[in-house]
C-alpha cells in the first residue's frame, strides 16, 4: 500500500505523470512477458508458462491472505483440488457449461473455507495455520479415497473446452485463457488491497485490537478474505485440470500448498507483483529440478530460509533498493 493524499495530488502532478509512464511501461512489460512464450512456438515452453500463470493466480491469492492480511493457510492446495474436481465432474462428466463449472468449483472451495474459517478465525494467533494444515491433510485423504474423484488414479479423458464457439483445445489458445485469468486476478488483488476493505485487512494484520476499535469487523473481514482467496484458488484448480487434461490427488497435496507459500515468500509477500515473480521463478526451477525428485523440496527450504533472513520482503524489494540507491546518487 502506498497511498498519496488526494488533497495534495494537484501539487504533485509531475509525479503523477511519471507514475503514468511507470504504469504504461509495466503494462507493456507484462504484455511482453505474456506474449513471449507464444512467440517461441515451443510446446514445452507453453506448458511451463501455463503452469507459471496458474502458479501466479495461486500466489497472488495466498499473498492477499498471508502477506496482506496476516492469515497463514496451508490449505490452498485443497481448495485448488476442490475447484479442479468440481469443474471436471460438472463439465467433463455431466456436460455443464465450462465457465459455470469453473465458478461452481470456486464457489464450493469458498464454501469449505467459510465453514472452516468461521469457527477458526474467531481465535487469534496461528490457529488458522493449524486448522488449515489439518484440513489439507483431510481433504487429500478424501481425494485419494472418494469414488467421485476417481481415487488415487484420478480422472482421465479431460478435453479442453470450447467457449462461445472458440476452441481452447490447443495448449497455445488455452495459455492465452490462463494469462487472461491471471491478469484479471492480479487486477482484482490490486483493487482489493487498495480499497477500504483492503485497508481493514492491513489493520488486522498490524493490530487486531486497534482494528476492532476503529470499527473494522475483524472476524467478518478475516472470514471474508479467507473465503475469497479460497475461491480464487478453486478457480485456479479448475483451470489447471484442463491445462493438464488429467487430475489426480498428488497435484493437490500439502507439497503444492507449501510450493505456493514459497512463491509468495520468495517473490515478496506484501506485493502482487512479488507473488507473480515468485510464481514464475518457482515454476521454472521446479521444472529444472524435476529430475531430482523430492530433493527439490530441500531447495525450496534453503531458498525460503535465505530469503527470510536477507530479503524479508522478497525479491521485489531489490527493485526498491536499486531505485532508492539511484535517487540518492542522482539527487541530494
Amino acid at each position: 500500500m502506498n497511498v498519496q493524499p488526494q488533497a495534495t495530488a494537484a501539487a504533485k502532478s509531475p509525479r503523477n505523470g511519471s507514475r503514468l509512464r511507470t504504469n504504461a511501461l509495466a503494462l507493456a512489460g507484462a504484455f511482453a512477458v505474456i506474449a513471449l512464450p507464444l512467440l517461441s512456438g515451443n510446446g514445452y515452453i507453453i506448458q511451463v508458462a501455463s503452469l507459471a500463470a496458474i502458479g501466479a493466480i495461486m500466489a497472488v491469492s495466498l499473498g492477499i491472505l498471508y502477506g496482506h492480511s496476516g492469515q497463514l493457510s496451508f490449505a490452498h492446495a485443497a481448495f485448488y483440488g476442490v475447484g479442479a474436481y468440481t469443474a471436471v465432474v460438472l463439465h467433463t462428466q455431466h456436460g455443464v457449461n465450462f465457465i459455470v463449472s469453473l465458478f461452481a468449483g470456486a464457489a464450493l472451495s469458498g464454501l469449505v473455507a467459510f465453514v472452516v474459517g468461521l469457527p477458526t478465525l474467531r481465535l487469534r494467533g496461528n490457529y488458522l495455520a493449524i486448522a488449515t494444515m489439518a484440513l489439507q491433510l483431510g481433504i487429500s485423504e478424501v481425494f485419494v479415497n472418494a469414488k467421485i474423484t476417481g481415487g488415487s488414479v484420478g480422472i482421465l479423458g479431460i478435453v479442453r473446452p470450447t467457449i462461445a464457439g472458440f476452441s481452447f483445445e490447443s495448449p497455445f489458445a488455452y495459455y492465452v485463457l490462463l494469462a487472461l485469468a491471471a491478469v484479471l486476478v492480479f487486477m482484482l488483488a490490486h483493487y482489493i488491497v487498495h480499497s477500504r476493505a483492503g485497508r481493514g485487512l492491513a489493520a488486522i494484520r498490524e493490530d487486531e485490537t486497534a482494528a476492532g476499535v476503529i470499527g473494522v469487523d475483524v472476524i467478518w473481514y478475516k472470514v471474508s478474505i479467507f473465503t475469497i482467496t479460497a475461491m480464487i484458488a478453486g478457480l485456479a484448480g479448475g483451470l489447471f485440470a484442463y491445462q493438464l487434461e488429467y487430475v489426480s490427488p498428488e497435484s493437490f497435496n500439502l507439497d503444492w500448498s507449501i510450493a505456493v507459500l514459497s512463491m509468495v515468500i520468495i517473490g515478496g509477500k506484501r506485493s502482487a507483483i512479488g507473488a507473480v515473480v515468485g510464481a514464475v521463478i518457482v515454476t521454472i526451477v521446479t521444472q529444472l529440478l524435476f529430475s531430482v525428485g523430492d530433493l527439490q523440496f530441500l531447495v525450496y527450504g534453503v531458498w525460503i530460509i535465505v530469503i527470510m533472513l536477507f530479503l524479508p520482503e522478497g525479491l521485489v524489494s531489490i527493485w526498491g533498493m536499486v531505485r532508492r540507491g539511484a535517487t540518492s546518487e542522482v539527487g541530494l
Partner: peptide, 12 residues
C-alpha cells in the same frame, strides 16, 4: 473506516 461504506464486493 467508519466514514466509508464500500466492502469487498465494491472493491472488486
Amino acid at each position: 473506516h467508519l466514514r466509508g461504506r464500500h466492502g469487498f464486493a465494491a472493491a472488486c
